[in-house]
Simulated scan of single mutants.
Amino acid sequence: MKQLDIEAIETLKDVMEDEFSILLDTFFEDSKLRLDDLQSNILSNDAEALRRTAHSFKGSASNLGALALADLCMRAESLGAKKSLEGADSLVSQIKAEYLAVEILLKSYL
Score class of each variant (00 low, 15 high):
residue 54 A to C: 07
residue 107 K to E: 14
residue 45 N to Q: 15
residue 87 G to W: 02
residue 25 D to P: 01
residue 43 L to N: 15
residue 33 L to N: 14
residue 104 I to L: 08
residue 13 K to T: 07
residue 104 I to K: 14
residue 35 L to F: 00
residue 55 H to I: 02
residue 105 L to F: 09
residue 102 V to H: 04
residue 53 T to H: 03
residue 62 S to G: 15
residue 88 A to H: 04
residue 37 D to L: 14
residue 57 F to T: 07
residue 7 E to Y: 03
residue 36 D to Y: 05
residue 110 L to W: 12
residue 85 L to F: 04
residue 68 A to K: 15
residue 75 R to W: 04
residue 57 F to V: 06
residue 55 H to C: 02
residue 82 K to L: 13
residue 22 I to D: 15
residue 27 F to P: 12
residue 106 L to P: 04
residue 96 K to S: 12
residue 101 A to C: 08
residue 48 E to Y: 07
residue 71 D to R: 07
residue 52 R to A: 13
residue 26 T to F: 04
residue 36 D to Q: 13
residue 90 S to L: 10
residue 1 M to R: 09
residue 16 M to L: 15
residue 1 M to F: 08
residue 95 I to H: 00
residue 27 F to S: 11
residue 21 S to F: 05
residue 107 K to L: 10
residue 102 V to Q: 04
residue 27 F to V: 09
residue 62 S to I: 07
residue 100 L to N: 14
residue 68 A to Q: 15
residue 70 A to E: 08
residue 47 A to R: 03
residue 16 M to F: 12
residue 50 L to R: 03
residue 4 L to N: 06
residue 77 E to D: 05
residue 85 L to A: 04
residue 106 L to Y: 02
residue 83 K to R: 12
residue 11 T to R: 08
residue 10 E to S: 09
residue 91 L to W: 00
residue 91 L to G: 03
residue 45 N to P: 01
residue 22 I to K: 11
residue 93 S to W: 00
residue 101 A to W: 01
residue 24 L to E: 07
residue 86 E to N: 07
residue 81 A to W: 05
residue 89 D to Q: 12
residue 32 K to W: 09
residue 23 L to G: 05
residue 69 L to G: 06
residue 46 D to T: 02
residue 34 R to A: 10
residue 72 L to V: 05
residue 34 R to W: 11
residue 79 L to D: 06
residue 10 E to K: 09
residue 29 E to R: 09
residue 97 A to I: 03
residue 73 C to S: 07
residue 53 T to Q: 06
residue 39 Q to N: 13
residue 69 L to N: 07
residue 67 L to G: 08
residue 88 A to V: 05
residue 66 A to H: 00
residue 7 E to F: 04
residue 49 A to Q: 11
residue 61 A to C: 11
residue 100 L to A: 14
residue 102 V to I: 13
residue 63 N to C: 00
residue 48 E to M: 08
residue 49 A to R: 10
residue 7 E to A: 13
residue 103 E to P: 04
residue 110 L to K: 13
residue 83 K to G: 04
residue 59 G to T: 01
residue 20 F to M: 03
residue 8 A to E: 06
residue 40 S to G: 12
residue 59 G to C: 01
residue 38 L to V: 05
residue 70 A to M: 06
residue 17 E to Q: 12
residue 93 S to H: 06
residue 17 E to G: 08
residue 93 S to E: 14
residue 71 D to L: 05
residue 48 E to I: 09
residue 42 I to R: 11
residue 22 I to Y: 09
residue 17 E to P: 00
residue 75 R to N: 14
residue 67 L to A: 10
residue 20 F to L: 01
residue 49 A to F: 01
residue 20 F to R: 03
residue 13 K to D: 02
residue 94 Q to K: 09
residue 5 D to R: 02
residue 45 N to C: 11
residue 34 R to H: 08
residue 37 D to E: 15
residue 100 L to R: 11
residue 61 A to L: 03
residue 10 E to I: 06
residue 38 L to F: 05
residue 32 K to Q: 15
residue 73 C to A: 07
residue 10 E to T: 08
residue 47 A to N: 04
residue 68 A to F: 10
